[in-house]
Design a protein around this nucleic acid. Structure first.
Length: 855
RNA sequence: GGGCGCUUAGCUCAGCUGGUCAGAGCAUCUCCCUUACAAGGAGAGGGUCGGGGGUUCGACUCCCUCAGCGCCCACCA
């Protein structure tokens, strides 16, 4: 406990109290607490690929407020932090930062020094480095970023237990991730399959449905003529991707389409290449789209995949994994002229190939009319720059209900078992699960991730046997199959016929981050700890990743534990620019969190964040931070003032009805704030507490300060005691929201941290106090008359200090009687010489009214 | 095309289960250096609660419908 300073200030309180909290382990999770006394939070691990922004400050503040509330309610709060440092965003940042690229075929170079450390020149060509070297650089850069992240979160005042810190690339996370994957594999929930998948040609990896987004892109319809075998008029199709003509394997129309029904079963020849393809019927074909008959290529879009699969069409793949037309013409393209045309396409990017093929179609006369420009949605990897292609490759999948109705229904039902905040977010979840169109593709052809922990036997020809992977021993995890050797083999057999090969892929980052409860709770190596935190109380996160992180976590938990991983999901909103546009990082003028902490103080920034109701998109507002700073300053000053009255030891009786009325009002606020916090509504708790506190300062404090000052006044002890009770409650009510200033003022008169103090309660506030309706009515009436007096003084443009010669109060007799018996504070605060109670006025109006005559 | 949310003073928003609300903060204007705080205090002005219809004794609050804004999803050749 320190003493009340002469000149209270907010300066420096963040550093002082952060340091103290760390030293005293104020926020340590009590690992011995049973599950029912624990409040467990599945903190979102921010992606380590740059810097934290106001969106993080915003949402993490919300969670922290709730964490602090439950801690004060006596819960052992499990509040970990994690860094999501594995995955593509990190790789991309490492490439850009050091000017390197990963080439797994290169050997490790000990002591490798990257060409740059930040901002390579634009014309720099990435230096290829080995996979181990690349991973070292990833580790190095993420370590730096993570330090900055931690500093920022500490400055923000997050009450996380930093000893629980985890990273998603750590050995522990890799072990957990591989263990969970192997469990999925053992139960048949994970499987590999050679199939067409969406592919990002720049990143060179498959991507999952959840990571795809549509973008509006310019395109054009091209009318292209196909020639009927056996004569007859050409069949005209319209396509936005004429470059895929050589990949065409069929024309498809709707079974009921009279125009094309006669053609079903016949064959046509493709333009330019003269490849014979069938005309077939399928209900997915839309008669009103284009000419009503579509060219099915392998593969232009997901509909093509469906047609190809369901109609058992040929495979004629022409786009390579690099996004270029492959060198060798697909089967069916033969003869001098077609092959000459193919030669003009081979090696071109898809975009260039389109231009070339349009030229050729013009030359051959098979392009009818000119292309007609349109804008249409095109599928992109959400982090990618070029449209996705579809290529056939072997990938690993985890069942998620996308191909399995019962599982899908079960997962939807799981969502219904949880409480969602706000409630309507459950629709996003259900909507997504209902719309799944395939299992979860978890393998990625990347490097900085958790390896798929499998090897494959190679047959005499050196071909891998994918049907019976070699599984590592559980105790050996984590493993890297590209360097570790499977049991029963030796290193020399790697890649040799009769030997083995490691799975070359890593798991998607969501495949690991979907296990945050298991990672943070130490599922694999501390089952006792895990049992104390699982299922967790709340998953806080942004609503944009319901379909990814939330759903993926649900899938893993459902499959592994047959239950939802949390009881609540709390979805936070977005930060918008002051002009209500989604805040973009690309704008150069974005203010950094640290600048705002410096300018207004952490509590003030938190105040802004906590003012937004859960799940609501919110405008960035420095004005709101200024208001928060005012509140913090007010708390300093009011506390200093109240504590300055002093108190006699043991004299804590609240006897005066004015004081009792005040405490009754505060008790109601405590009830409201408590209910609000329990419902994750930190904003309502703040709003109610704040509004009451300003009333407390402006009305109650003004009303009783004269009495509290006056040692000779018999009501002084009651006022002082009530003021201190109220103050103690306000400090604690605001502690979850403004942790620094409340800790500061609490320290002036109480032992220990306010953040470990017990949450205020009605009974505690009103113990021994006669807080009946009369007390509340009296205080109410007193404030009403005081208000009338103030209004008069303001209207007359005199100081509030000016004396009132006479104040005549009209109103119901019972009210007046209450007032008459206890009007000392009113006389004092209003400067009233003569106070007259006149009963109801002439008109019989029962409303309380005061006629004020100034001196 | 499907789903969801929003539309209340100039601005940002509260108004939970229909009958003290038409409210708060910011901004604007006026006044007050009052013995915690001028990084303060006391007041004022300002809205037919998006439009229309309905249920009801009575709706910002319930139902229907229309419009605008925003978000999510979608197999869109």
């Amino acid at each position: 406990m320190s003493t009340v300073p002469e000149k209270p200030t907010l300066d420096g309180i963040e550093a002082r109290h952060s340091e103290r909290w760390e030293r005293e382990r104020t926020y340590a999770w009590d690992r011995t607490a049973p599950r029912e006394r624990t409040f467990a939070i599945d903190t979102p691990p921010p992606t380590v690929s740059g810097s934290l922004h106001m969106g993080h400050v915003f949402s993490y503040t919300h969670t922290d407020a709730v964490a602090r509330y439950w801690r004060m309610r006596g819960k052992s709060v499990f509040y970990p932090m994690g860094w999501d440092d594995n995955g593509l965003p990190t790789e991309r940042r490492v490439q850009n930062f050091y000017g390197v690229s990963c080439d797994p075929s290169l050997p490790y170079v000990p002591g490798f020094v990257p060409p740059f450390r930040g901002d390579p020149p634009k014309d720099h060509r990435a230096v290829p480095v080995s996979r181990p070297n690349f991973l070292e650089l990833c580790d190095e850069l993420t370590a730096e970023d993570e330090k900055a992240f931690e500093d920022l979160f500490r400055r923000l005042g997050l009450s996380v237990d930093w000893s629980l810190l985890y990273t998603t690339i750590s050995p522990h996370a890799r072990r957990t991730s591989q263990r969970a994957f192997l469990a999925n594999l053992a139960r048949g929930e994970a499987y590999s399959q050679e199939a067409p998948t969406l592919w990002d040609v720049d990143f060179g990896t498959a991507v999952a449905q959840a990571e795809i987004e549509d973008r509006e892109r310019p395109g054009a319809y091209h009318s292209v003529a196909f020639h009927r075998e056996g004569g007859g008029p050409d069949v005209v199709i319209e396509t936005t991707r004429p470059e895929l003509v050589p990949a065409c394997v069929a024309l498809v129309a709707h079974p009921d389409d009279e125009r094309y029904r006669p053609l079903f079963g016949s064959r046509v020849r493709t333009p330019l290449f003269g490849v014979g393809v069938p005309v077939v019927a399928h209900p997915l074909a839309q008669p009103d789209k284009g000419s009503g008959i579509a060219m099915c290529c392998t593969f232009g879009d997901l509909t093509d995949v469906t047609w190809w699969r369901e109609l058992r069409l040929e495979l004629r793949a022409i786009v390579g994994r690099d996004g270029r037309i492959v060198a060798d013409a697909p089967h069916g393209i033969e003869g001098a002229e077609p092959l000459a045309r193919w030669a003009r396409l081979a090696g071109l990017t898809v975009k260039r190939a389109q231009a070339e093929i349009v030229t050729m179609l013009r030359e051959s006369g098979e392009l009818l009319g000119e292309p007609r420009a349109i804008t249409h949605p095109v599928k992109f990897y959400e982090k990618g720059d070029r449209p996705l292609e579809i290529v056939t490759s072997r990938q690993w999948y985890v069942r998620n209900g996308g191909r399995d109705r019962p599982l899908r229904d079960a997962l939807v039902a799981r969502g219904g078992e949880m409480a969602w905040h706000p409630e309507h977010m459950v629709h996003r979840y259900a909507n997504w699960v209902e719309g799944l169109n395939g299992d979860w593709l978890i393998s990625r052809q990347r490097y900085f991730g958790v390896p798929i922990p499998l090897w494959y036997r190679l047959d005499a020809q050196g071909r891998p046997d994918h049907d019976a992977p070699i599984v590592p021993d559980a105790t050996a995890l984590p493993i890297d199959p590209s360097t570790d050797v499977p049991p029963g083999f030796d290193a020399a057999q790697r890649g040799r016929p009769g030997g083995f090969a490691g799975d070359p892929d890593v798991m998607d980052t969501w495949a690991t981050s979907s296990l945050t409860p298991q990672i943070a709770g130490r599922w694999v190596d501390d089952p006792d700890a895990f049992a104390r935190i699982f299922p967790m109380d709340v998953r806080p996160q942004g609503h944009d990743i319901i379909r990814t992180w939330l759903f993926a976590t649900m899938v893993r938990s459902h499959l592994e534990f047959d239950r939802a991983p949390w009881r609540h999901a709390a979805l936070s909103g977005w930060i918008l620019d002051p002009d209500r546009k989604k805040m973009s990082k690309s704008k150069g003028n974005v203010v950094t969190p640290v600048q705002l902490f410096d300018a207004y103080g952490s509590d003030a920034v938190r105040y802004w964040a906590a003012s937004a109701r859960p799940g609501v998109d919110t405008a960035f507002s420095e004005d709101q931070m200024k208001v928060g700073r005012k509140l913090a300053t007010k708390l300093l000053n009011a506390t200093k003032f109240v504590l300055g009255f002093g108190t006699a030891p043991g004299d804590d009786a609240v006897a005066d009805p004015i004081d009792a009325g005040m405490l009754a009002g505060l008790a109601a606020v405590v009830d409201e704030a408590t209910a609000a916090f329990a419902d994750f509504d930190y904003a309502r708790a703040l709003e109610r507490t704040e509004a009451w506190f300003w009333w407390f300062c402006d009305d109650y404090l003004e009303l009783v300060k004269g009495r509290a000052y006056d040692d000779a006044h018999p009501g002084a002890p009651s006022a002082r005691a009530a003021l201190r009770r109220a103050l103690g409650a306000v400090h604690r009510l605001l502690a979850p929201l403004l942790p620094f200033v409340t800790e500061e003022v609490w320290g002036w008169w109480r032992e220990g941290s306010v953040h470990r103090a017990q949450w205020p309660a009605r009974d505690e506030l009103l113990a021994g106090v006669r807080a009946d309706d009369d007390a509340v009515a009296l205080l109410d009436a007193t404030c009403a008359v005081l208000g009338a007096i103030r209004r008069t003084k303001t209207e007359r443009k005199v100081s509030q200090r000016a004396e009132v010669a006479r104040c005549e109060v009209h109103g119901p007799a019972d009210r007046l009687a209450l007032l008459a018996a206890h009007d000392g504070d009113l006389r004092n605060a209003g400067g009233v010489r003569e106070l007259v109670y006149a009963g109801p006025d002439a008109a019989g109006d029962v409303a309380l009214r005061a006629t004020v005559t100034l001196a």
